[in-house]
Protein backbone atom coordinates (compact mmCIF):
# COMPACT_ATOMS: atom_id res chain seq x y z
CA UNK A 1 0.00 0.00 0.00
CA UNK A 2 1.12 3.52 -0.71
CA UNK A 3 -0.52 6.80 0.15
CA UNK A 4 -1.20 8.56 -3.12
CA UNK A 5 -3.29 11.37 -4.41
CA UNK A 6 -6.11 10.56 -6.77
CA UNK A 7 -4.13 12.14 -9.62
CA UNK A 8 -0.98 10.16 -8.87
CA UNK A 9 -2.98 6.95 -8.54
CA UNK A 10 -4.24 7.56 -12.08
CA UNK A 11 -0.78 8.47 -13.39
CA UNK A 12 0.81 5.39 -11.81
CA UNK A 13 -1.88 3.07 -13.14
CA UNK A 14 -1.42 4.39 -16.65
CA UNK A 15 2.34 3.85 -16.31
CA UNK A 16 1.86 0.31 -14.97
CA UNK A 17 -0.50 -0.56 -17.80
CA UNK A 18 1.87 0.90 -20.40
CA UNK A 19 4.62 -1.30 -18.97
CA UNK A 20 2.27 -4.26 -18.88
CA UNK A 21 1.01 -3.92 -22.46
CA UNK A 22 2.83 -2.32 -25.44
CA UNK A 23 -0.48 -1.63 -27.12
CA UNK A 24 -1.46 0.85 -24.42
CA UNK A 25 -0.71 4.45 -25.35
CA UNK A 26 -2.10 7.81 -24.36
CA UNK A 27 -2.90 10.96 -26.24
CA UNK A 28 -4.36 14.32 -25.34
CA UNK A 29 -3.77 18.02 -24.96
CA UNK A 30 -0.63 19.18 -23.17
CA UNK A 31 0.24 15.76 -21.79
CA UNK A 32 3.81 15.33 -23.03
CA UNK A 33 5.74 18.01 -21.19
CA UNK A 34 3.13 19.53 -18.91
CA UNK A 35 1.88 16.11 -17.92
CA UNK A 36 -1.71 17.28 -18.31
CA UNK A 37 -3.11 20.25 -16.46
CA UNK A 38 -3.78 18.09 -13.37
CA UNK A 39 -0.59 16.05 -13.62
CA UNK A 40 -2.21 12.76 -14.54
CA UNK A 41 0.44 12.08 -17.21
CA UNK A 42 3.39 13.73 -15.48
CA UNK A 43 6.74 12.32 -16.56
CA UNK A 44 5.13 9.53 -18.59
CA UNK A 45 6.76 10.88 -21.75
CA UNK A 46 10.16 10.51 -20.07
CA UNK A 47 9.65 6.81 -19.54
CA UNK A 48 7.60 5.88 -22.58
CA UNK A 49 8.57 8.53 -25.16
CA UNK A 50 6.35 10.74 -27.22
CA UNK A 51 5.29 7.90 -29.51
CA UNK A 52 3.22 6.48 -26.67
CA UNK A 53 2.54 9.73 -24.84
CA UNK A 54 1.28 11.96 -27.63
CA UNK A 55 0.26 15.58 -27.64
CA UNK A 56 -2.73 16.48 -29.77
CA UNK A 57 -4.03 19.74 -31.16
CA UNK A 58 -7.18 21.23 -29.63
CA UNK A 59 -9.34 19.02 -31.84
CA UNK A 60 -11.34 16.69 -29.64
CA UNK A 61 -13.49 15.25 -32.42
CA UNK A 62 -10.39 14.38 -34.34
CA UNK A 63 -8.27 12.79 -31.66
CA UNK A 64 -11.14 10.94 -30.05
CA UNK A 65 -11.85 9.67 -33.56
CA UNK A 66 -8.18 8.72 -33.89
CA UNK A 67 -8.52 6.81 -30.64
CA UNK A 68 -11.58 4.94 -31.91
CA UNK A 69 -9.66 4.05 -35.07
CA UNK A 70 -6.55 2.95 -33.20
CA UNK A 71 -8.62 0.81 -30.86
CA UNK A 72 -10.49 -0.79 -33.71
CA UNK A 73 -7.10 -1.46 -35.38
CA UNK A 74 -5.88 -3.37 -32.32
CA UNK A 75 -4.30 -0.78 -30.03
CA UNK A 76 -5.52 0.05 -26.49
CA UNK A 77 -5.56 3.85 -26.56
CA UNK A 78 -6.24 6.10 -23.60
CA UNK A 79 -7.60 9.44 -24.77
CA UNK A 80 -7.36 12.24 -22.26
CA UNK A 81 -9.83 15.08 -22.52
CA UNK A 82 -8.73 18.20 -20.68
CA UNK A 83 -12.35 18.76 -19.61
CA UNK A 84 -15.05 16.14 -19.96
CA UNK A 85 -17.30 18.95 -21.23
CA UNK A 86 -15.41 18.43 -24.49
CA UNK A 87 -16.93 15.01 -25.01
CA UNK A 88 -19.69 17.11 -26.59
CA UNK A 89 -17.23 18.18 -29.27
CA UNK A 90 -16.55 14.50 -30.03
CA UNK A 91 -20.02 13.18 -29.51
CA UNK A 92 -20.35 11.57 -32.93
CA UNK A 93 -17.12 9.67 -32.46
CA UNK A 94 -18.10 8.52 -28.97
CA UNK A 95 -21.76 7.68 -29.34
CA UNK A 96 -22.14 6.90 -33.03
CA UNK A 97 -18.81 5.21 -33.58
CA UNK A 98 -17.11 3.91 -30.42
CA UNK A 99 -20.35 2.82 -28.79
CA UNK A 100 -21.71 1.03 -31.85
CA UNK A 101 -18.84 -0.48 -33.80
CA UNK A 102 -18.66 -3.79 -31.97
CA UNK A 103 -22.38 -4.35 -32.41
CA UNK A 104 -22.53 -3.19 -36.04
CA UNK A 105 -19.59 -5.34 -37.10
CA UNK A 106 -21.23 -8.37 -35.63
CA UNK A 107 -18.66 -8.59 -32.88
CA UNK A 108 -15.74 -8.89 -35.32
CA UNK A 109 -14.35 -5.46 -34.39
CA UNK A 110 -13.85 -4.30 -30.86
CA UNK A 111 -13.03 -0.89 -29.40
CA UNK A 112 -10.77 -1.16 -26.33
CA UNK A 113 -10.75 2.61 -25.84
CA UNK A 114 -10.58 4.62 -22.63
CA UNK A 115 -11.69 8.23 -22.80
CA UNK A 116 -10.70 9.81 -19.53
CA UNK A 117 -10.53 13.22 -17.97
CA UNK A 118 -11.93 15.39 -15.25
CA UNK A 119 -15.28 17.06 -14.78
CA UNK A 120 -17.26 18.93 -12.21
CA UNK A 121 -17.26 21.93 -9.99
CA UNK A 122 -14.76 23.31 -7.53
CA UNK A 123 -12.68 25.72 -9.54
CA UNK A 124 -15.21 28.19 -10.87
CA UNK A 125 -14.51 26.99 -14.41
CA UNK A 126 -17.93 28.16 -15.59
CA UNK A 127 -20.59 26.63 -17.77
CA UNK A 128 -18.44 24.89 -20.39
CA UNK A 129 -15.83 23.50 -18.00
CA UNK A 130 -17.75 22.44 -14.89
CA UNK A 131 -20.37 20.03 -16.14
CA UNK A 132 -20.99 16.48 -15.00
CA UNK A 133 -21.62 14.40 -18.08
CA UNK A 134 -22.10 10.85 -16.80
CA UNK A 135 -25.87 10.76 -17.09
CA UNK A 136 -25.75 11.50 -20.81
CA UNK A 137 -23.51 8.53 -21.47
CA UNK A 138 -25.58 6.22 -19.34
CA UNK A 139 -28.41 6.70 -21.79
CA UNK A 140 -26.69 5.44 -24.94
CA UNK A 141 -25.89 1.71 -24.99
CA UNK A 142 -22.41 0.54 -25.93
CA UNK A 143 -20.20 2.59 -23.69
CA UNK A 144 -19.23 1.89 -20.11
CA UNK A 145 -19.17 4.70 -17.55
CA UNK A 146 -16.84 4.62 -14.53
CA UNK A 147 -16.69 7.26 -11.77
CA UNK A 148 -14.05 6.71 -9.08
CA UNK A 149 -14.31 8.66 -5.84
CA UNK A 150 -11.06 7.61 -4.10
CA UNK A 151 -7.43 7.15 -5.22
CA UNK A 152 -7.68 3.38 -4.83
CA UNK A 153 -10.86 3.24 -6.88
CA UNK A 154 -9.29 5.48 -9.49
CA UNK A 155 -6.41 2.98 -9.79
CA UNK A 156 -8.51 -0.17 -9.64
CA UNK A 157 -11.24 1.00 -11.99
CA UNK A 158 -8.80 2.52 -14.48
CA UNK A 159 -6.95 -0.78 -14.79
CA UNK A 160 -10.23 -2.56 -15.46
CA UNK A 161 -11.13 0.16 -18.00
CA UNK A 162 -7.82 -0.16 -19.88
CA UNK A 163 -8.09 -3.94 -20.01
CA UNK A 164 -11.73 -3.85 -21.12
CA UNK A 165 -12.32 -4.59 -24.79
CA UNK A 166 -15.14 -2.05 -24.94
CA UNK A 167 -15.09 1.75 -24.88
CA UNK A 168 -15.04 3.16 -21.38
CA UNK A 169 -15.79 6.72 -20.39
CA UNK A 170 -13.60 7.23 -17.32
CA UNK A 171 -14.82 10.26 -15.40
CA UNK A 172 -12.50 11.82 -12.84
CA UNK A 173 -13.39 14.77 -10.66
CA UNK A 174 -11.21 17.85 -10.61
CA UNK A 175 -11.88 18.46 -6.92
CA UNK A 176 -10.73 14.95 -6.05
CA UNK A 177 -7.30 15.04 -7.71
CA UNK A 178 -5.53 16.28 -4.61
CA UNK A 179 -7.34 13.95 -2.21
CA UNK A 180 -5.12 11.26 -0.73
CA UNK A 181 -5.67 7.67 0.08
CA UNK A 182 -4.13 4.24 0.29
CA UNK A 183 -3.62 2.54 -3.03
CA UNK A 184 -2.45 -1.08 -3.42
CA UNK A 185 0.96 -1.36 -5.06
CA UNK A 186 -0.01 -4.57 -6.82
CA UNK A 187 0.19 -3.82 -10.57
CA UNK A 188 -2.68 -6.26 -11.06
CA UNK A 189 -4.96 -4.50 -8.57
CA UNK A 190 -8.27 -4.03 -10.33
CA UNK A 191 -11.82 -3.25 -9.27
CA UNK A 192 -14.44 -5.03 -11.35
CA UNK A 193 -17.10 -2.98 -13.10
CA UNK A 194 -20.68 -3.37 -12.01
CA UNK A 195 -20.01 -3.75 -8.32
CA UNK A 196 -21.15 -0.90 -6.13
CA UNK A 197 -19.21 0.04 -3.01
CA UNK A 198 -21.03 0.37 0.31
CA UNK A 199 -19.12 3.28 1.81
CA UNK A 200 -20.96 3.23 5.08
CA UNK A 201 -23.48 0.78 6.41
CA UNK A 202 -26.73 2.05 7.84
CA UNK A 203 -30.28 0.99 8.39
CA UNK A 204 -32.61 3.98 8.09
CA UNK A 205 -31.95 5.53 4.71
CA UNK A 206 -29.91 4.68 1.61
CA UNK A 207 -27.94 7.50 0.04
CA UNK A 208 -26.50 6.78 -3.40
CA UNK A 209 -23.81 9.20 -4.50
CA UNK A 210 -20.83 9.28 -6.82
CA UNK A 211 -17.58 11.16 -7.31
CA UNK A 212 -17.31 14.29 -5.13
CA UNK A 213 -20.70 13.62 -3.59
CA UNK A 214 -19.61 10.41 -1.92
CA UNK A 215 -17.65 12.45 0.60
CA UNK A 216 -20.53 14.90 0.96
CA UNK A 217 -22.96 12.02 1.52
CA UNK A 218 -20.63 10.59 4.18
CA UNK A 219 -20.45 13.99 5.81
CA UNK A 220 -24.24 14.15 5.82
CA UNK A 221 -24.35 10.62 7.25
CA UNK A 222 -22.16 11.73 10.15
CA UNK A 223 -24.52 14.60 10.93
CA UNK A 224 -27.51 12.28 10.65
CA UNK A 225 -25.85 9.74 12.93
CA UNK A 226 -25.71 12.35 15.65
CA UNK A 227 -29.43 12.81 15.26
CA UNK A 228 -30.05 9.12 15.54
CA UNK A 229 -30.52 8.44 11.84
CA UNK A 230 -28.38 5.69 10.41
CA UNK A 231 -27.64 6.30 6.75
CA UNK A 232 -26.16 3.78 4.34
CA UNK A 233 -23.97 5.37 1.70
CA UNK A 234 -23.47 3.58 -1.59
CA UNK A 235 -21.22 4.54 -4.49
CA UNK A 236 -22.23 2.70 -7.66
CA UNK A 237 -18.64 3.20 -9.01
CA UNK A 238 -19.81 2.35 -12.52
CA UNK A 239 -23.11 3.59 -13.88
CA UNK A 240 -22.71 1.27 -16.86
CA UNK A 241 -22.81 -1.51 -15.91
CA UNK A 242 -24.95 -0.55 -12.92
CA UNK A 243 -25.04 -2.65 -9.76
CA UNK A 244 -28.70 -2.05 -9.03
CA UNK A 245 -28.86 -5.21 -6.91
CA UNK A 246 -26.75 -3.73 -4.13
CA UNK A 247 -28.89 -0.59 -4.10
CA UNK A 248 -32.16 -2.52 -4.14
CA UNK A 249 -30.93 -4.71 -1.33
CA UNK A 250 -30.00 -1.67 0.68
CA UNK A 251 -33.38 -0.03 0.11
CA UNK A 252 -35.12 -3.22 1.09
CA UNK A 253 -33.30 -2.84 4.37
CA UNK A 254 -33.73 0.90 4.89
CA UNK A 255 -36.97 1.64 3.07
CA UNK A 256 -35.81 5.07 1.92
CA UNK A 257 -33.69 6.25 -0.98
CA UNK A 258 -31.84 9.48 -1.64
CA UNK A 259 -29.82 9.86 -4.81
CA UNK A 260 -27.40 12.73 -4.89
CA UNK A 261 -25.10 13.81 -7.66
CA UNK A 262 -23.53 16.85 -9.12
CA UNK A 263 -25.02 16.09 -12.52
CA UNK A 264 -28.30 17.86 -13.21
CA UNK A 265 -31.25 16.49 -11.32
CA UNK A 266 -33.63 16.29 -14.28
CA UNK A 267 -32.95 13.18 -16.30
CA UNK A 268 -29.96 12.48 -14.09
CA UNK A 269 -28.74 9.00 -13.24
CA UNK A 270 -30.38 9.33 -9.83
CA UNK A 271 -33.74 9.32 -11.57
CA UNK A 272 -32.87 6.06 -13.29
CA UNK A 273 -31.86 4.48 -10.01
CA UNK A 274 -34.98 5.76 -8.29
CA UNK A 275 -37.11 4.31 -11.08
CA UNK A 276 -35.40 0.93 -10.94
CA UNK A 277 -35.72 0.81 -7.18
CA UNK A 278 -39.41 1.59 -7.41
CA UNK A 279 -39.80 -1.14 -9.98
CA UNK A 280 -37.99 -3.68 -7.89
CA UNK A 281 -38.54 -2.66 -4.28
CA UNK A 282 -41.77 -0.69 -4.25
CA UNK A 283 -43.18 -2.70 -1.39
CA UNK A 284 -40.19 -1.83 0.75
CA UNK A 285 -40.44 1.92 0.33
CA UNK A 286 -41.68 4.00 3.22
CA UNK A 287 -41.38 7.28 1.36
CA UNK A 288 -40.88 8.38 -2.23
CA UNK A 289 -37.23 8.34 -3.36
CA UNK A 290 -35.71 11.79 -3.30
CA UNK A 291 -33.34 12.96 -6.05
CA UNK A 292 -30.79 15.63 -5.39
CA UNK A 293 -28.77 17.09 -8.24
CA UNK A 294 -27.61 20.33 -9.76
CA UNK A 295 -30.37 22.81 -10.47
CA UNK A 296 -31.56 22.94 -14.04
CA UNK A 297 -29.36 25.84 -15.02
CA UNK A 298 -25.91 26.41 -16.47
CA UNK A 299 -23.16 26.19 -13.90
CA UNK A 300 -22.07 29.71 -12.95
CA UNK A 301 -18.53 31.02 -13.04
CA UNK A 302 -18.87 32.63 -9.62
CA UNK A 303 -17.87 30.08 -6.96
CA UNK A 304 -20.61 31.21 -4.57
CA UNK A 305 -23.22 30.81 -7.25
CA UNK A 306 -21.69 27.49 -8.26
CA UNK A 307 -22.35 26.23 -4.75
CA UNK A 308 -25.90 27.52 -4.91
CA UNK A 309 -26.58 25.39 -7.96
CA UNK A 310 -25.25 22.07 -6.71
CA UNK A 311 -26.61 20.11 -3.69
CA UNK A 312 -25.09 20.92 -0.30
CA UNK A 313 -24.46 18.60 2.64
CA UNK A 314 -27.28 20.27 4.54
CA UNK A 315 -29.70 19.45 1.72
CA UNK A 316 -28.69 15.80 1.89
CA UNK A 317 -29.34 15.84 5.63
CA UNK A 318 -32.72 17.48 5.10
CA UNK A 319 -33.66 15.04 2.35
CA UNK A 320 -32.82 12.10 4.57
CA UNK A 321 -34.96 13.52 7.36
CA UNK A 322 -37.76 14.22 4.94
CA UNK A 323 -37.65 10.62 3.79
CA UNK A 324 -38.08 9.64 7.43
CA UNK A 325 -40.89 12.15 7.93
CA UNK A 326 -38.84 13.98 10.47
Amino acid sequence: MSIKTYAVAIRDTIAQEMRHDDKVFIMGEDIEVLGGIFGCTRDLAKEFGTERVRNTPITEATFVGAGVGAATAGMRPIVELMYMDFTYVAMDQILNQAAKIRYMFGGKAKVPLVIRGQQGIGRGNAGQHSQSVESLFMHIPGIKVACPSTPAEAAGLLRTAIRDDNPVLFLEHKALYSTKGEVPDDPEFAIPFGKAAIKKEGKDVTIVANLLYVSKALEAADILEKEGISAEVIDPLTLVPLDIDTIVKSVQKTGRLITVHEAHREGGWGAEIAAQVMERAFRYLDSPPIRLGAKQCTLPFNLGLENAVVPQVDQIVQAAKQSLYR
Partner: peptide
Protein backbone atom coordinates in the same frame (compact mmCIF):
# COMPACT_ATOMS: atom_id res chain seq x y z
CA UNK B 1 -53.27 5.41 3.13
CA UNK B 2 -50.15 3.61 4.19
CA UNK B 3 -46.76 3.41 2.58
CA UNK B 4 -45.92 0.11 0.92
CA UNK B 5 -43.31 -0.49 3.61
CA UNK B 6 -45.80 0.23 6.39
CA UNK B 7 -48.12 -2.34 4.86
CA UNK B 8 -45.25 -4.81 4.58
Amino acid sequence: YATPRAKL
